[in-house]
Write a protein that binds this DNA or RNA. Structure first.
Length: 468
RNA sequence: GGCCCCGUCGUCUAGCGGUCCAGGACAACUGGUUUUCAUCCAGUAGAUCGCGGGUUCGAUUCCCGCCGGGGUCACCA
């Protein structure tokens, strides 16, 4: 394959906290798009806003991405030919400044001395923009000179032309959008602290890193004309740009927010969801294969990936399918794998052998790792019986009687209980549910006989007696 | 409000002018397996394809309008 046609995609998160579930999706799509055609997937950290940076979040992003199997071919920790891959470290490269100065010289940008708005001001004003042109664009060279000698630090803005149009065809939407430049802002490119804004940095970095396909959130779509203008004025080729759908809150009202939802990948992992399941779940939120396959491993996804499958309308974040997916992946894990994930959840007093004994019993009923605790808790200690246990106590004396005289193996126990229900003509469903509740204090449990065997005859008898 | 995007079962979606009185998955419900619950299996129900106009012999599929939803309008990304 011609090396100039290698697909190069990137995931470019800001280190402002834990990896967002939507970020995971973006990363997965970029990963699949690249790997599907033997291209490269690049990780770039966009940390040009020092104020918002959260300590430790870059490392967290690395480990979380890796937990999902999304390894990057170039980026922090692994290197590559186009580093550094952390934006703040790229400032010293001088490319941002050089680009801004080029635009300045060619009359495509101008110095701006306006006072930046504080977050509070933005909030309180809440005024909609009606003026797209910044007053500083009319400053004379003399005025600029004077301000700079007076010690004012200038920022650099894009001098957006009037009366023109700019357009692109969206890689995800498959649709061409055209903007009149009159309503495109004189966007900030280089801040007065010398750091680039996103608008400048993406263009410069994506170009230098030879990115061929840009996949990003839909919220970036409105600022695309700015980027297009920068590409144009810098004389740079425009990569494919695609805007992914926004994931909506479960009620469909608004973009997925952490207000009422868990949006942190780390948290889902901590809650006992498998990375495979989480990934599979978000994959299907915004992309679908022609044949509607819904169970994917990462490599299957890469193999079947097709940009035509990108969805155009915003999906709701409805967790229901995640639980199902998680159960599916859980069932495919070996008992040993499950053990390695759940052992730390148990009371350290409980011997590993006992935990291993219980895993095959609980496995099929688990939707998440943590379920094993509620499923098997009654095996390790006497359950807390709810006040309204709702059992038919009439059965108890017979059960105690029958079990007391039974040998303590599967066949014996089942035979004696079976004979009992037959002899007394008991309603089997009712009878066994009573026994289940008496033994476990809950309705959903691993197979009863096996559980009773592990618990032991004496303990079972004593539990039954305590309820009479 | 300006600009931009989107609109098929409750949810995720297939569908790219006739093969669709619209298919699949999850959820729901029913039955079977399980001595019971869960799992598993089978089945049932669920969408006048947002609405109204066109174009066409024929529109879920193409065009326009409306309505509805979402996004965005910082020296944040």
């Amino acid at each position: 394959m011609d090396s100039t046609h290698v697909v190069r995609t990137r995931f470019a998160p800001s280190p402002t906290g834990s990896l967002h579930i939507g970020g995971l999706r973006t990363a997965a799509y970029a990963y699949a798009l690249a790997r599907h055609s033997d291209g490269k997937f690049i990780l770039r950290i966009e940390d040009t806003d020092q104020k918002r940076e959260v300590a430790g979040s870059t490392e967290q992003i690395y480990s979380t991405l890796r937990a999902f199997g999304l390894d990057w071919d170039e980026g922090p920790e692994v290197g590559g030919d186009f580093g550094p891959y952390i934006q703040s470290e790229r400032v010293s490269l001088g490319s941002y400044k050089k680009a801004a100065e080029k635009l300045l010289q060619e009359g495509r940008a101008f110095y701006c001395f306006c006072k930046p708005k504080s977050k509070e001001e933005i909030k309180s004003e809440r005024q909609f923009k009606i003026e797209f042109r910044d007053p500083c664009r009319h400053l004379t060279p003399e005025e600029i000179e004077a301000k700079i000698t007076a010690g004012e630090k200038p920022a650099i803005r894009l001098k957006t032309p009037d009366g023109e149009t700019i357009s692109y065809t969206d890689y995800v939407l498959g649709k061409t959008t055209t903007w009149k430049t009159d309503i495109v802002d004189d966007a900030m490119l280089l801040k007065s602290d010398g750091f680039p804004t996103y608008h400048l940095a993406v263009v410069v970095d994506d170009t230098e890193m030879k990115i061929t396909h840009v996949l990003r959130g839909h919220d970036w779509q409105p600022s695309t004309p700015i980027h297009l203008l920068v590409y144009k004025f810098l004389g740079l080729p425009v990569p494919e740009i695609g805007h992914l759908t926004d994931i909506l809150n479960p009620d469909g009202k608004g973009k997925l927010s952490k207000r009422n939802n868990n949006v942190s990948c780390e948290q889902y992992l901590a809650d006992g969801y498998l990375p495979e399941a989480i990934l599979n779940f978000v994959l299907l939120l915004g992309w679908a294969p022609k044949d509607n396959q819904d169970l994917f491993t990462l490599s299957e996804f890469v193999e079947k990936f097709d940009p035509k499958g990108f969805q155009k309308s915003n999906p709701r974040f409805d967790i229901a399918k995640l639980d199902w997916l998680n159960g599916q992946f859980l069932k495919r894990q070996s008992d040993e794998e499950i053990f390695s994930h759940v052992k730390s959840l148990f009371d350290p007093q409980i011997p590993a052998e006992k935990i291993k004994q219980v895993i095959p019993l609980a496995k099929e009923r688990m939707h998440r790792y943590g379920d094993i605790l509620s499923l098997t808790g009654f095996i390790f200690s006497t359950p807390q019986y709810p006040a309204d246990l709702g059992i038919n106590k009439d059965y108890l004396p017979d059960i105690i009687n029958s079990l007391s005289t039974s040998d303590w193996d599967k066949v014996s126990i089942e035979t004696s209980l079976n004979e009992l229900t037959k002899a007394k003509n008991y309603n089997r469903s009712d009878f066994f549910m009573t026994l289940r509740l008496a033994v476990a204090g809950q309705k959903v449990t691993p197979p009863l006989t096996e559980s009773m065997i592990i618990i032991g005859k004496d303990e079972i008898i004593s539990r039954l007696k305590s309820l009479t």
